[in-house]
Amino acid sequence: MQTEIIIAGFGGQGVLFAGQVLAYAAMDAGKEVTWIPSYGPEMRGGTANCTVIISDEEIGSPLVRHPRGVIALNLPSADKYERLVAPGGVLVGNQSLIDHPFSRTDITHVQVLANELAEQIGDRRLTNMVCLGALLALMPVIPLEAIEKALENHLPERHKRLLPANFQALQAGCEVALKNTMHAAETLKNQ
């Protein structure tokens, strides 16, 4: 059993960190995991992404063409990855920066006003955690509690005061996603 997740957005949106949190949680759960960033010139100010693969056996390719799950934190990422999500997979979009609904009917997708939710919780920088919460609500590869534990265990000491806000962001994303999601089956039914 292998699950591939791509998290994509602008540099500075916490794309790489959100992936690392996922990787830490997978490691702590005793899974095989790889985290690989796009480390090219694009990380200097443009789009950034990372691929996280979680598996029960030795992981082969660290990159995939068609991931099971995608978090698109901005419009270019949404446009690039909507068509690449594996059929039956999950796509979470940051509605705050995406100006049109997703159109795929063979995947489960949701858009979350992540910037606004993050700001309500108190910090725009929580956008990534809101979206991670949303993804995990629809794709229970790792329980939310395990993500919280991973944050606790691996966040540097100086950032530990931010833990409660991070937990809140994960929860908020999770709740919104469960309410608003278009499931693959439903979208097919509605056609």
Partner: peptide
């Protein structure tokens, strides 16, 4: 190669 250098694994 760059992939081994940049990737994180347990």
């Amino acid at each position: 190669d760059g992939s081994i250098g940049q990737m994180m694994e347990p």
